[in-house]
Design a protein around this nucleic acid. Sequence first.
DNA 1: AACCCACGCAACCGCGTTCTA
DNA 2: GTAGAACGCGGTTGCGTGGGT
Length: 279
Amino acid sequence: MGRPPCCDKIGIKKGPWTPEEDIILVSYIQEHGPGNWRSVPTNTGLLRCSKSCRLRWTNYLRPGIKRGNFTPHEEGMIIHLQALLGNKWASIASYLPQRTDNDIKNYWNTHLKKKLNKSESDERSRSENMVLQTSATRNTVNHRSTYASSTENISRLLEGWMRASPKTSTTTTTFLEQKMQNRTNNFIDHHTDQFPYEQLQGSWEEGHSKGINGDDQGVKNSESNNGDDVHHEDGDDDDDHHNATPPLTFIEKWLLEETSTAGGQMEEMSHLMELSNMI
DNA sequence: AACCCACGCAACCGCGTTCTA
DNA sequence: GTAGAACGCGGTTGCGTGGGT
């Protein structure tokens, strides 16, 4: 309490992350694993506060993150989990391992809240069904469904950055100088100018197997389950998330059984609604 | 073509919780 | 047991972008 924010320190950079910074951060985490964020800026030479590094990693760079439009299934889960848990975005995110709490929060604030308000004002008695129906309808219309894993994001930004600035770097730190050579060798396909996803992923997992812990159990799982919403095990995500998560056994069961297929979804939704009404 | 506005998303900030010496 | 440091979460902000006029 009353502690000054770490980002007030002089010389700390704010604002959007550059591809360079992303690469440095990813390289470092690939080698040392996430955690001990305080040491990340000093060890990497990044002019960012530890908080910013952690946020960038968890919200954007972490592997297994699904980006792009939310599926009706995900949307339904968010709506009902929000009804059950409130604005516990981290807890909700633990049920959607491929989505970040920030993503879910943004999606709720920009889409779902409005939608729910609208349907509630339209007709309160039918609002619940309205939500589900409009969800499905909307998704068929909204088809920017190019989900990309974060590794793909990284590969793309690497590609762009490497083309733009072949070898030089403005933030020449000891760490960067040492690692960029190695990492680009790992990331870049020697035979093409592309950064094949498989190769990048392989590189990542190779680094992981050296000793990444905690979050990365989930990282591995979600990576291997890319494109699948199923949440397979409890050790899948942050410990905090699970500690904070109430024993929603029905939902867990539902999530385990349910895939992105729409079949049976509506029926399960109605069960969920009953459950949430009881609570 | 230029301007305005609304929207979406990435990042920041403040505070509560947890950890450690 | 306590204080300070680090971490994690939720709310909020600011900027880029696309659509409308």
